[in-house]
Design a binder for these strands. Structure first.
Lengths: 333, 333
DNA sequence: ACATAAAAACGAATCGTTTCGTTTTTGCAA
DNA sequence: TTGCAAAAACGAAACGATTCGTTTTTATGT
C-alpha cells in the first residue's frame, strides 16, 4: 500500500519522469528498463489510477447506466460490455435506476458523470431530454433513442421484427391478437407497435384497439394488463409480449387463468430466450444477439474515444431474430 | 467542463480552503456560505472526485466482482448493492469474470484494486487463495467463502435448506433422488451436498452416489449432467438443481427427454423464482431473499469502512426459503 | 579522438482537491 | 474603547502521477 513511482525511481537511480515514461510505453535505456521492471516486481507497484486521472483528465472509466438488472437481458448486456471494455483497459462504473422514475434516472447519470467517466453507455427511459445535451463525453444509447437528440445508438430493428412476428400469428389464422406493450413514448415500444400495425395493414386486417395494452414495462404491470385482456368479453386468441419483463408478466397471467399455450392462447415473447427454451411448449420468441450488441456498443465507443473521431452520430440497427417454437397454434378463421 | 474550486474561490473573494471546508460541511461565515452556494450554481461546479480521491485516499468507489451476470440472480444482487451503496454516496465499479477461469478472476480483482476502491464485494469461484490476504481494504464475500481465509461473508444456510428440500422429496416417497451440483470444492456446493446427505441420514435411506453429479455450475454443463442421469438404466425419480444455472440446465434436459414434471420426474430448483412462477406446473424452489442479502452486505461494508471498526470478521448466514410449488409428486415406495 | 546530432534522462510545474499550522476577524466582557 | 479568547479564513504544502522544456548521455562519422 502506497508504493509510488517515486520509490521506483529512487530504487533505480533514475528520475520519476523516466519511470513514468517507461510505464506508459516510452523508450528507455535497456538497463533502466530491466531495473524498473525488477523494482516494480519487488515493490509490487501499481500505478495509481487516480493520480494519473487527475493529470491526464482521462479516467479510463466508462459509466454504464441501466434500469435495474431484474431481467437477465440487461444483466447480460452489462456483463458483455464490461468484458469488452476491460480488454481495452477500461473499468466500468455501473449505476442502475428505477425504471419508472425519471428523477432517479437523471440523478444516477449525474452521479456517474461526477466520477469523470470518459464515456457513458445509457439505456434511457425518459424520452424527455435529460440534460444530456451539455455533456461533452461520448454517449451511446442502447435499446432506445431519445427524441430530438442526435446521439450514437445501437438498437434492434423493432418495426420489422415485430411485423414479422405479428404476421406469423396472423398467418396462423388469428384475428384477435393482443399486444402487451410498454408506454409508446419510449421508442422501442412505439416501433414495436408500428410493426404490429404494419402487419395488420399488410394483411388487410382491422386493428382492434382493445387488444393493445400500454403500461410500465414491468412484470407486475404486464401481469395486470394481461389479466384485463383475458377478462374481456371476447378475449384475444394470441398475445405478444413486447419485451422480456412484459413477456414474463403475460405468461404469469396466462398461467393464473389456467390457460394452456398454445391450445387456449398463442404467444410470442421478446428477449426471454432462457425461459423460452425450458418452457413447455418451446416458446416462439424474438431474440436479440447480445454479444453483437455489446461488440457494436464498445466498438463505437472506442472509435469515439479516439479524439480525432468527430464523424456524424451513428444509429446502428441490429437484426433481431424470430426463434420458432411451438407456442403459436394454427386456428381456423 | 473544468470549473474548479479555485474559480469558485476567486468569484467569492475567499480562499480555496474556505470553499473546500464549506463543501465538506465545515462552518463558514453566513455571507460566504451564500456566495459560495450561488457561485456553485452559477458555474455548475461539481467537485472533482478524482482530485479529492488523490488527496484523501478514499475514492468512494466499491468494487463488485462477480461471475458473468447471465442469471438474473447475480444481476439482482448487483443492482441491489449498487442502489444501497449509492444512497451512501458510493459508486460501484463492476467487474465480471468467467466462472470457470481462476486466472480471469484474479486479474479482474487486481484490475479493480488498481482503481483504489475503498472496499471489495466478491463472489469468489476459486477456493485457491487469491492473494486476498495482502489486501488491506474491507472485503465482503457473498454466497461463498474461501477455505482458510477469515473474511466477512454473507451466505445462505445451505445445509439446512437443502436438507429440508431433500427431506420433502424423500417424504413424498422418493428414493432415487438426483443432485445436480457444482464442484464441491466450492463451499455452497459442498454444503448443499452435506444437506442432501444429512436428509438421507435422518431418514435412514442409503445414498446412491450414481445420482450425485458434479460439474461446472453452468446451464450447459447441467444439461449434460442431467442427460447422463436420465440415461442411466435406472434413472432418478426426482432431481434437485443446486443453483439457478444448474436448475435451468436440468429443466432443459428434462424437456428434451420429453418428460413431464412432476408426473415423470419431480424437481426442486434453486434461485430461479422468475422461472418457477411462470412454469407449468409451479415449481418448488429454494429462494434467497436478495434484498436481505444486499442490505446485509452493504450494512457490513459501511461498518467496516468506519475506520474505528476492527471487530472480528463476521459470517452472516441468512435463511433461504423453500417455496412450495407442484413439482414434487407423491409416489409409492 | 572530436564534433555533432539524436536519444534519453532530468527537474520543475501542474492537475484539483484537502489539510494543517498560522494569521485575521469576530463577538463579548471589562 | 480595549483586550482576548474563539471562530473563521488564509496560504502553502501535499497527494502521485504526467508533461514539457532543458540538460546530459550516447552513438555516429570523420
Amino acid at each position: 500500500m502506497g508504493v509510488t513511482i517515486k520509490d521506483i525511481a529512487r530504487h533505480c537511480h533514475v528520475s520519476t519522469s523516466t519511470v513514468s515514461k517507461y510505464i506508459n510505453g516510452g523508450k528507455v535505456r535497456e538497463k533502466n528498463k530491466i531495473a524498473i521492471d525488477e523494482a516494480i516486481q519487488l515493490y509490487n507497484f501499481k500505478t495509481n489510477a487516480i493520480a494519473r486521472g487527475l493529470k491526464t483528465k482521462r479516467s479510463s472509466l466508462v459509466g454504464i447506466v441501466v434500469p435495474t438488472l431484474d431481467s437477465a437481458f440487461f444483466g447480460n448486456i452489462v456483463s458483455g460490455i464490461e468484458a469488452l471494455l476491460y480488454k481495452n483497459g477500461f473499468s466500468s462504473i455501473i449505476s442502475t435506476f428505477i425504471p419508472g422514475d425519471p428523477v432517479s434516472e437523471n440523478r444516477k447519470i449525474e452521479f456517474v458523470l461526477e466520477r469523470s467517466v470518459d464515456a457513458l453507455v445509457l439505456v434511457p427511459i425518459c424520452t424527455k431530454r435529460l440534460d444530456l445535451e451539455g455533456i461533452t463525453i461520448p454517449i451511446i444509447l442502447i435499446d432506445r433513442v431519445i427524441d430530438d437528440f442526435a446521439c450514437d445508438s445501437v438498437t434492434p430493428n423493432n418495426i420489422e421484427i415485430v411485423e414479422k412476428a405479428t404476421s406469423k400469428i396472423i398467418e396462423a389464422g388469428h384475428k384477435r391478437i393482443a399486444l402487451v406493450n410498454g408506454f409508446d413514448n419510449i421508442t422501442p415500444f412505439r416501433d414495436r407497435l408500428k410493426g404490429y400495425y404494419s402487419a395488420f395493414d399488410k394483411h388487410n386486417l382491422p386493428i382492434i384497439k382493445e387488444y393493445i395494452s400500454f403500461g410500465e414495462a414491468s412484470v407486475s404491470e404486464a401481469y395486470k394488463m394481461m389479466n384485463r385482456l383475458l377478462e374481456l368479453r371476447v378475449p384475444p386468441t394470441a398475445v405478444i409480449g413486447a419485451n422480456s419483463s412484459l413477456s414474463l408478466g403475460v405468461l404469469l397471467s396466462i398461467k393464473e387463468h389456467g390457460l394452456l399455450i398454445p391450445e387456449d392462447i398463442s404467444f410470442i415473447g421478446f428477449d426471454c430466450y432462457d425461459l423460452a427454451i425450458v418452457y413447455r411448449p418451446l416458446l416462439t420468441t424474438i431474440e436479440q444477439d447480445i454479444q453483437q450488441i455489446c461488440e457494436n456498443v464498445v466498438g463505437l465507443l472506442l472509435r469515439r474515444l479516439q479524439k480525432s473521431d468527430s464523424s456524424p452520430k451513428e444509429s446502428i440497427v441490429l437484426k433481431a431474430t424470430l426463434i420458432e417454437g411451438n407456442s403459436v397454434a394454427q386456428i381456423n378463421g
